[in-house]
Amino acid sequence: MNPLTERQVEELKQLLLEERRQLQDHFEREDADGAATASETASTGELSAYDNHPGDLGTETFERERDMAIDERLDGQLEETEAALDRIATGRYGICEICGEPIPFERLEALPAARRCVAHASDTLSEARPPEEDVMTAPPSGAGSGRRANAGRFDDADAWKTLEDYGNASDTVRTDRGANDPALD
């Protein structure tokens, strides 16, 4: 049922093997470096964070979190690559897991680990809601009603226009004290 030729499958397998090698190299280099497992104070070279301003370690914290997110993404990519190689071994490669139709060679050439045809590619997005929603409470009834009740009142959005209508400070002072006040001259 798979319209891919043996040559095409072999070409795609080589792409997958190269991708797997690159991803494994990334993780091996990271393990050898040991930066991911080092404590924050060890990775920065600081003996203590107590004498530093909290913002001093902000960049380091950001960098570590970014690296962790990249590693998580690359780990998922490695799993997808391994799964595609398993599909090649079992003869299920190049078949959409939703409709069972063949995935065109061009799509597989662009995304060798693709599991679905273009028509079902958007089905990969999870409909699951974030776990935080399970513990969040609903807003109280009437939330936002105060905003609607105060519609049209001064909200600082037109502050410059409002101030412009009143003039500047020297105009106000001269009006209040009079034009003959020597302190103003």
Score class of each variant (00 low, 15 high):
Met1Asn: 06
Asn2Ser: 15
Pro3Val: 04
Leu4Ser: 04
Thr5Glu: 06
Glu6Phe: 01
Arg7Ala: 13
Arg7Asp: 06
Gln8Met: 08
Val9Asp: 02
Leu12Cys: 01
Lys13Ile: 08
Leu15Gln: 10
Leu15Phe: 02
Leu17Cys: 02
Glu18Asn: 09
Gln22Ile: 03
Gln22Gly: 02
Gln24Leu: 15
Phe27Leu: 09
Phe27Ala: 06
Glu28Cys: 03
Glu28Ser: 10
Arg29Lys: 10
Glu30Leu: 14
Asp31Pro: 00
Asp33His: 07
Ala35Cys: 09
Ala36Thr: 10
Thr37Ser: 15
Ala38Trp: 11
Ala38Thr: 11
Ser43Tyr: 10
Thr44Arg: 06
Thr44Leu: 13
Gly45Thr: 07
Gly45Asp: 08
Glu46Met: 05
Glu46Asn: 03
Tyr50Ser: 14
Asn52His: 12
His53Gln: 11
Asp56Val: 06
Gly58Tyr: 01
Thr59Cys: 01
Thr61Glu: 12
Thr61Lys: 11
Phe62Cys: 03
Glu63Gly: 00
Glu63Arg: 13
Arg64Ile: 14
Arg64Thr: 12
Glu65Gln: 13
Arg66Phe: 06
Ala69Gln: 11
Ala69Phe: 04
Ile70Ala: 05
Asp71Pro: 00
Glu72Ala: 10
Leu74Glu: 06
Leu74Gly: 00
Gly76Val: 03
Gly76Thr: 03
Gln77Leu: 09
Leu78Val: 01
Glu80Pro: 00
Glu82Gln: 08
Ala83Ile: 02
Leu85Asp: 04
Ile88Gly: 02
Ala89Val: 08
Arg92Cys: 05
Cys99Glu: 10
Cys99Gln: 04
Glu101Leu: 13
Pro102Val: 11
Ile103Arg: 04
Pro104Met: 14
Pro104Lys: 11
Phe105Tyr: 10
Glu106Gln: 04
Arg107Glu: 03
Arg107Pro: 01
Leu111Tyr: 04
Pro112Ser: 03
Pro112Ile: 06
Ala114His: 05
Ala114Gln: 10
Ala119Pro: 00
His120Phe: 12
His120Trp: 11
Ala121Ile: 07
Ser122His: 08
Ser122Leu: 12
Ser122Val: 09
Asp123Met: 11
Thr124Tyr: 05
Thr124Cys: 05
Ser126His: 09
Ser126Val: 11
Ala128Trp: 01
Ala128Asn: 06
Glu132Tyr: 01
Asp134Gln: 12
Asp134Lys: 11
Asp134Trp: 06
Met136Pro: 00
Met136Asp: 07
Thr137Asp: 10
Thr137His: 06
Pro139Tyr: 05
Pro140Trp: 07
Pro140Asn: 08
Ser141Asn: 06
Gly144Cys: 09
Gly146Lys: 15
Arg147Trp: 05
Arg147Glu: 12
Ala151Pro: 00
Gly152Asp: 09
Asp155Leu: 12
Asp156Ala: 14
Ala157Cys: 04
Asp158Phe: 10
Trp160Ser: 13
Trp160Met: 15
Trp160Asp: 15
Thr162Gly: 03
Thr162Phe: 10
Asp165Trp: 05
Gly167Trp: 08
Val173Ile: 15
Arg174Asn: 06
Asp176Glu: 15
Arg177Lys: 13
Ala179Lys: 14
Asn180Gly: 14
Pro182Asn: 11
Pro182Gly: 09
Pro182Arg: 14
Asp185His: 13
